[in-house]
Structure formats: structure tokens, C-alpha cells
């Protein structure tokens, strides 16, 4: 087909519309980035200042030091990576078991999935008492395990259909050739599901990095993730908008970077094997 003028005009219009949508959606994020580099006198101005008179990185120094942003960053990293790794191991096992062997039938599948939809407030009190009973309040262990519980159902759900769709004959022929079930699972099935595994790993990381409610309830001073620091700064009489924006930026950038790095897995991994 030879592109006509009308067709290329439509294509241009489409690109322009897409660009406009992206710009509108990114405005709040851009505003945060701009605030983060504004000097103190320009945070609150009427009319607002759209671009700082000079770029001031002091907000980041203050955020990382005085407001505990560095500890927040380290703790968030530890919690999110720990939870992601554990969730992946546990979740991939379970998803393979469900997808390949129909373990426990539909009842088990649905029970696991329903945990995904459990409102956090519904389980907050008993979980608080649970971790307290083990002396694990304000510990990395509790937060990592808690997040794993929320990540696994999602991982199972997405990966299960992937494993179902992988042709079992390859694993079966490996078994015939003397491989163990374990090796057939690890060496054949897992690599085939890689795009989906990367996608769910990314989403698990994002969830664990961002989680707020349980972090507020289960932690205090020893473990302080970034999302919890933010609201504590938005109070009092002298709200340091620039430093808060800096902490918010520090909290947002890693997940944004990671998402872009793993972008190509997202679309492939999240088609849920629903359409083929």
C-alpha cells in the first residue's frame, strides 16, 4: 500500500494525540522533579514558579541526610529485593505446580487468587499480632514475608497460564532421557517462561518498593522504607516542600528506571496467555 497524504496525516495526528496524552499524564511527575531542584524561596510562590532560577541540589542533600532518606533508600532496597527474590522462588514453584499438575484443582487456584484481593485492613490486626508473637515487629523479616504473601498470588496467576501453554512434550522427552522432574522444571520450563517471570518480578519489586499500609503498621525505627518517610515530612509548620520532592524523586526513580530497562518483557509477560 502506498501511503496517501490522508494516511500520513492521520498517522501524524495519532502521534500528536499520543504525545499530548503522555504530556498530560506526566505533568504531576514533572512538577515534582522541578520542585526537587528549586531553591527554598521558590517552593511556594504565587504565581507558581515553573522553572527554578538556579538549580539547587541542596534538597537532595537535606533529604538524604537530615530526613533519613539514605536509610530509607537502603531499607527499601533490602525489603523490595528480598521480597522479590523470595516471591519469585515460592511463586514460580507454585505456578508450575498449578499450571502443569493442576495441584489442588480449581479450589486451590481460586483460594490463592483470592488472597490477592484481600483488603489489607481486613488482615492488618491479626497480622500485627502474628508478627508481634514472633518478636518480629519492626524487622526486615516480617516485612519481606508479608510482601511475599501478597506477591505470590499474582505471580501464580500470571505464570500459571504461561506454564499451561508451554508444550509439555519437551519436559516429557527430557524425563524419558533420564532427567529428574526438578531438572525438567528448572532447565526447560522456567527458561521458556522467562518473559513472564521477568514481568512478574518487576511488578513484585514495584509493589514491595511502594507498599505503605503494612510498612506503617509493622515498622518503627529499625526499618524505615521511603514511602513511610514521606507523610511524616508533610506535617508541621515549616513544610520543606523541596526536600519532600527530593525524597519522592528518590523513591520514584529506581522503579521508573527498572521499568524502562525491562520494558520489553512487560507487554509479552502480561498478555496472560489469554489470547493466542
Amino acid at each position: 500500500m502506498i501511503p496517501t497524504f490522508g494516511a500520513s496525516f492521520r498517522r501524524g495526528l495519532r502521534a500528536f494525540a499520543a504525545f499530548l496524552v503522555l504530556f498530560v499524564f506526566l505533568c504531576p511527575v514533572l512538577w515534582m522533579l522541578i520542585t526537587a531542584i528549586k531553591p527554598p524561596g521558590e517552593w511556594l510562590n504565587s504565581p507558581p514558579i515553573f522553572w527554578p532560577s538556579n538549580i539547587d541540589l541542596g534538597n537532595f542533600t537535606e533529604a538524604l541526610g537530615r530526613w533519613g532518606g539514605f536509610k530509607g533508600l537502603v531499607d527499601s532496597l533490602a525489603v523490595a529485593s528480598g521480597a522479590t527474590l523470595l516471591s519469585l522462588v515460592v511463586g514460580v514453584f507454585a505456578a508450575y505446580s498449578l499450571g502443569r499438575f493442576r495441584t489442588g484443582g480449581e479450589t486451590l487456584s481460586f483460594s490463592i487468587l483470592s488472597v490477592l484481593f484481600m483488603p489489607p485492613v481486613a488482615v492488618a490486626v491479626p497480622m500485627y499480632l502474628f508478627w508481634r508473637a514472633f518478636g518480629l515487629l519492626d524487622s526486615f523479616t516480617a516485612l519481606i514475608l508479608q510482601y511475599t504473601v501478597f506477591n505470590v498470588p499474582f505471580i501464580c496467576w500470571v505464570l500459571k497460564s504461561f506454564f499451561e501453554d508451554i508444550d509439555p512434550t519437551m519436559e516429557e522427552s527430557a524425563l524419558v532421557n533420564g532427567a529428574t522432574r526438578w531438572r525438567a522444571f528448572v532447565d526447560i520450563a522456567v527458561p521458556l517462561a522467562r518473559p513472564a517471570i521477568v514481568a512478574v518480578a518487576l511488578l513484585s519489586f514495584i509493589f514491595s518498593w511502594n507498599e505503605f499500609f503494612f510498612a506503617v503498621i509493622l515498622t518503627r525505627a529499625r526499618v524505615t522504607t521511603l514511602p513511610v518517610i514521606l507523610p511524616t515530612l508533610m506535617e508541621g509548620h515549616d513544610i520543606r516542600w523541596g526536600s519532600i520532592a527530593a525524597i519522592a524523586t528518590i523513591a520514584a526513580l529506581p522503579v521508573i528506571a527498572l521499568t524502562f530497562a525491562l520494558q520489553r518483557y512487560l507487554v509479552r509477560g502480561l498478555s496472560f496467555g489469554a489470547i493466542r
Binding site: 541542596g58 542533600t61 538524604l64 541526610g65 533519613g68 532518606g69 539514605f70 533508600l73 524505615t224 511524616t232
Partner: peptide, 28 residues
């Protein structure tokens, strides 16, 4: 849930990394 250690060297604007590292040292 912020914790601030009150004693020890004051954190000045020694740059992002410096401040971060000194926080780490104090935290330890």
C-alpha cells in the same frame, strides 16, 4: 518513624554521598 541520631557530627552540605555515608556510619 524517622529516626535521627542527635549526637555526633552535624551533617553539613558535604554533598549527597557524604551526607548519606555519614548517616550510614551513625546508624551503625
Amino acid at each position: 518513624m524517622n529516626r535521627t541520631i542527635l549526637t555526633g557530627p552535624a551533617i553539613s552540605r558535604r554533598g549527597v554521598l557524604g551526607a548519606g555515608l555519614s548517616m550510614l556510619a551513625l546508624g551503625a
